[in-house]
Design a protein around this nucleic acid. Structure first.
Length: 427
RNA sequence: GGAGAAGUAUCGAAGUGGUCAUAACGGGGCGCACUCGAAAUGCGUUUGUCGGGUAACCGGCACGAGGGUUCGAAUCCCUCCUUCUCCGCCA
């Protein structure tokens, strides 16, 4: 949610910022309605004040034994007028809210305009591994080593699902353990949230109403229409709601959390042949980091999160790069985003394993999450930030492809071995 | 799943149709006084939001949420949500 006062103050500036993100808006209708709304408020509040004054006199007049029936009949008319105006007002309110709720966040000043093609590489770690033998695709490797069972995954749930088996299961769990260990060492609080969330959670995150059909909705036969819950597409959706409708204190900020959850995504129509395997599934494991900070500290917090996510990939020894996204490539709620992309040899490309973003106060406004300044008086919206740390489903292909050996085995990154019984390779 | 009880500020809690919504009373926090300091004590101060106004200030709204009855609702009625207790079921 954008600050309505900024739109009132300088609609052109706001329009320009949104345009940078590829969102064309015209505020003139909105501002006209806004004025209309305020006029209505003045009108209806005047009537209410009158009604309150009259009502306050009733007990006294009654006590004095005076006839109050004329006041009653007059007030009946006033009440009816109030009702009519209130109805008009709430209609405008709803309309305005809907308009505002549909607007994306504005990009940060240092985020450049344009789409993907304008993404900038910030840093590169390592080099593309070179192989002296014919390399294999990760699907071939994990199937051959019995790590992933795609056939039976499809048997259970259809296309886009798989089953981890044997060393595949262990490697998956070792990755999660490795991530968790790092986050705990960095002082992040571990959260295990519900996986089914209520509608409001999606709204706060900025995913609803626009993208409500892109999540798995859980139909409840008792609900007359729509859905009551949905499967979370990322733990961010849960973590951003932890402090919804709360007033925090400046002294206790920042809150640093991480959560492990599977992520459930429809990914409707997004299948591409080059993404076969684990690159894009309907369910994948991810650990998500999340921070609530003051506005002053959110820039630094974003750098911290990017640093942490990159350090995890670095710790695995995987060649990867960090990119800063151009405005149109940032998701709707975010003002600034970095992606960490790992090298997948078979795709001859880098794939996102983490997306680290600063939402500024956009989500905080939607979820009404504020903090009291240390002066004890002023309230301000918190800033919220999230970053994957990390999604396993693209790390595992990177590991098996970057660490594949000529004999078909795969070396296990050293940091993971303690969770795999000291094993050095999968064969 | 069945039965019952409850939701009022930072916490406990009073209020059961108007003169009781910043909201009694109590606790906590903060400030001041007393003190070498602390405790104790005393005094004061502590919701948010939306409008109007350059401002001082003025007004509206909010008693879990949403409707209804009424001139008037924290209070009466309906629907929903949450919490607690008991029973049933269950990993």
């Amino acid at each position: 949610m954008l600050d309505i006062n900024l739109i009132r103050k300088d609609p052109d500036a706001m329009q320009a910022k949104l345009a940078k993100k590829g969102c064309q808006v015209d505020f003139s209708g909105f501002l006209a309605k806004d004025q209309q709304r305020r006029d209505l408020i003045v009108q209806v509040e005047g009537l209410k004040a009158k009604k309150n004054q009259q009502s306050a006199q009733i007990p006294q007049l009654k006590k004095e034994g005076k006839d109050v029936s004329s006041i009653f009949s007059e007030m009946k008319i006033v009440s009816e007028e109030i009702r009519v105006l209130d109805d008009q007002l709430s209609a405008i309110d709803n309309e305005q809210q809907e308009f505002l709720a549909a607007l994306p966040n504005v990009p940060a000043d240092d985020v450049i305009a344009g789409g993907k093609e304008n993404n900038a590489i910030v840093s590169i770690f390592g080099e593309k591994p070179s192989f002296s033998f014919a390399t294999r695709h990760h699907v071939d490797i994990v199937e051959k080593l019995g790590m992933i069972d795609y056939v039976r995954g499809a048997k259970l749930s259809g296309a886009g699902y798989w089953v981890y088996r044997k060393d595949g299961s262990r490697l998956e769990w070792a990755l999660l353990n490795y991530f968790m260990e790092q986050h705990l060492a960095d002082g992040y609080e571990m959260i295990l949230p519900p996986h089914m969330l209520s509608y409001t959670c999606g709204y706060t995150a900025g995913q609803f109403p626009k993208f409500k059909d892109e999540v798995y909705q859980v139909r409840n036969t008792e609900a007359e229409e729509g859905f009551t819950h949905f499967m979370l597409p990322t733990a961010e959706t849960a973590l951003v709601n932890l402090h919804r409708d709360e007033i925090l204190s400046e002294a206790e900020l920042p809150f640093k959390y991480f959560a492990y959850t599977p992520c459930y995504r429809k990914e409707a129509g997004s299948y591409r042949a080059e993404e076969r395997g684990m690159i894009r599934g309907h369910q994948f494991n991810k650990i998500e980091m999340f921070q609530y900070t003051t506005p002053e500290n959110s820039d630094a917090a974003l750098e911290e999160l990017v640093g942490k996510a990159a350090a995890l990939v670095k710790g695995l020894g995987l060649h990867h790069r960090v990119t800063k996204l151009a405005a149109e490539d940032c998701s709707a709620s975010m003002m600034k985003t970095y992606d960490i992309e790992v090298w997948i040899p078979s795709m001859n490309d880098y794939k996102e394993v983490s997306s680290a973003s600063n939402a500024g106060d956009y989500q905080a406004r939607r979820g009404n999450m504020r903090f009291r300044r240390s002066d004890g008086k002023t309230l301000a919206f918190v800033h919220t930030l999230n970053a994957s740390g990390l999604a396993t489903s693209r790390i595992m292909p990177a590991i098996v492809e970057q660490y594949q050996q000529e004999d078909g085995s795969v070396l296990i990154p050293e940091v993971l071995r303690k969770w795999m019984g000291g094993q050095e390779k999968i064969q």
